[in-house]
Design a binder for these strands. Sequence first.
DNA 1: TATGAATGAGTGTTCATTCAT
DNA 2: AATGAATGAACACTCATTCAT
Lengths: 210, 210, 210, 210
Amino acid sequence: MPRKKPRARDADATKARILAAAKSEFARLGLAGARVDEIAEKASANKRMIYHYFGSKEDLFQVVLEEAYLDIRSAEQELDLDHLAPRDALETLVRFTWDYYLDNPEFITLVNSANLHRGRHLENSERLRTASRRFVNMVRSILDRGVAEGVFRPGIDPVQLNITIAAIGYYYLTNRFTGGILFERNFMAKKALGQRLDFNIDTVMRLVQA
Amino acid sequence: MPRKKPRARDADATKARILAAAKSEFARLGLAGARVDEIAEKASANKRMIYHYFGSKEDLFQVVLEEAYLDIRSAEQELDLDHLAPRDALETLVRFTWDYYLDNPEFITLVNSANLHRGRHLENSERLRTASRRFVNMVRSILDRGVAEGVFRPGIDPVQLNITIAAIGYYYLTNRFTGGILFERNFMAKKALGQRLDFNIDTVMRLVQA
Amino acid sequence: MPRKKPRARDADATKARILAAAKSEFARLGLAGARVDEIAEKASANKRMIYHYFGSKEDLFQVVLEEAYLDIRSAEQELDLDHLAPRDALETLVRFTWDYYLDNPEFITLVNSANLHRGRHLENSERLRTASRRFVNMVRSILDRGVAEGVFRPGIDPVQLNITIAAIGYYYLTNRFTGGILFERNFMAKKALGQRLDFNIDTVMRLVQA
Amino acid sequence: MPRKKPRARDADATKARILAAAKSEFARLGLAGARVDEIAEKASANKRMIYHYFGSKEDLFQVVLEEAYLDIRSAEQELDLDHLAPRDALETLVRFTWDYYLDNPEFITLVNSANLHRGRHLENSERLRTASRRFVNMVRSILDRGVAEGVFRPGIDPVQLNITIAAIGYYYLTNRFTGGILFERNFMAKKALGQRLDFNIDTVMRLVQA
DNA sequence: TATGAATGAGTGTTCATTCAT
DNA sequence: AATGAATGAACACTCATTCAT
């Protein structure tokens, strides 16, 4: 017996399309600047579906944010840093962080938006806290191994180190527009990007050097 | 008998009040999130005056941004770093940058907003470009003196260094909300702030060390 | 049992109500004088619907204008003047034009508004151009038949004639207020209206007389 | 004794500049569309002066209107039609009316605006009523002389005649924009203007012909 | 006579959200 | 599951007018 309407089953696809459109719009325009109409149109979905699946614009923002953070945390785990020598592991992490920001520019503006709203939208995400703990432990383990092997100096706070690794890439990229104007450089030129990555690896290596 | 300045109906004072209110609102809510009505009310000014003096919400945003940047550039000049020993000068700059961000939290979110809008509002500010050139030259001069004295290694790009100095403070503070959640720390606790500043000074010193 | 048309939530009906209200308001107060709020209220519609269906106040004005012109052009076609003797056809047209202006006073002020705005809102209406061509051809055909029958003199430009037929009715009615003041007459008294129509028919007949 | 402040005496000049600017703006945009700010700027006058001299925007409109009407009435008197043969006098009047409309295009849109507002702004102008009476009498006298000389037919109402003389010129010019679109002609081309004037003279002459 | 500063009530337009089907 | 219609509150911006000097 042939099924009647194979139209259904789109629920997940519709949700995914909404989420992708929302991510793009929130990243591009911020929470206040993004428009529900525009998100619906870009998702080829009816506006009503957004409310059906996500409840409200803010709730949708919250889901987008959580997904974005879980994505980077999950990608970091796949780096398998525990199987690399400490120095290699650290350099890999610096490179990965930089590349991830470059490949996922929405991540940066989403995080900025989240903080403009004082982190309110992530407050209750236990999944995120768990993933973060795991991530910090990974960095700590690299540091510990490096100290044991005598290549890293002791006493480095893995959280501080990690903030710095993120900072030196993130800041350069998020402020690439005003930076380009103030310093009269094209921050996104291929050569400039390469130089910055080198500078950052150097910075981190000198920082942990025994 | 010299008359005092006839202060009532003072255009300059009104403009200044509008500017201050706008700075606060744009910093708090972003360009899209800020409300002209609210700015007017906080400035104890009539909404019409905003349009009279600044033309539009975006034009007002532009002025706020430019003023904010000029302010930090001007404060940096007052540090008189050329009269300090190179290492002291650099540490002073790192400390100043950190303190400025702490004392002027609006600066950070304003810069974020400027970049969310792709730097569009600063594109034509020659005043800013001039001030920035002067600032970069100041950092370059510190580096040169340090190299000459044998305390800094040669070949450091002053722009890269400066970006890093800004980054390691800026990122910590702008992302203090999500950071606090992910890393389960109070980023703004007095002790945490002190530790971060120490970490940053250390980072920069190791970076330039001969 | 056939269900009646589900009339509630009827987009067409809402559009029609908006159009009718807009016609009335634009006619009464002009494009600048009419208020979108008032149009919405008179249409028992939400203001948002006006923008949903018509885009903007000016676009709405454009649609109102085009509809108004198409309406008179369509009514003229229904006169079936080609089946009347040339003199009867012409008199019928003069009477119709006069009656149409009397019955549709909004038409006159709408046309005035259109011209105050330099015709900008009708520039791209191909429908209107088509209807106008058909109309001019109808008048031309009446003239031609009259000349062939020897009752009209030859060489009359149908466009000039038509402008005159419109003018002598239109001017009297559109300027009835200042006219009433200047000439100290009630232009809209039944007797005055009859006299003017007679005068106009006479004017046109003498103009085309062989 | 030397006069103190020779700055004064500008009062009349200021009023005149305001009046000229107001005429232009009201003609161009209508009563609702014209802006007090714009009028002040075009008059190189302070906005406050408009209120000082004229009381309100509507009062200013009233003065502009009255002046405009008095101007055409006064120009008509200067034609000295009583010294021309009846047919010449009539043709002169038709030509003058046409030329006046062409040379003073603001007059037409001002009259349209006056009537959009139902003549309200002219209701109490006794000066205008007086000038109008004189004008009607002039036309009546031409007709009477023509009848006496046997060149005009009797029984023509001077008011109706005058309305028609105005109408056939006024309508063509006020509706030149929509007319140009509908009839696909350039109503303002030199040749077109000449043809229309000829057509109008012909119309009037046939109308009064004995 | 003249003026720049200031204002309150609007004015077209947009928004996130809900209703009815 | 999905949709087009509808809404009310808000939004950026404007206006004619008055105040203070």
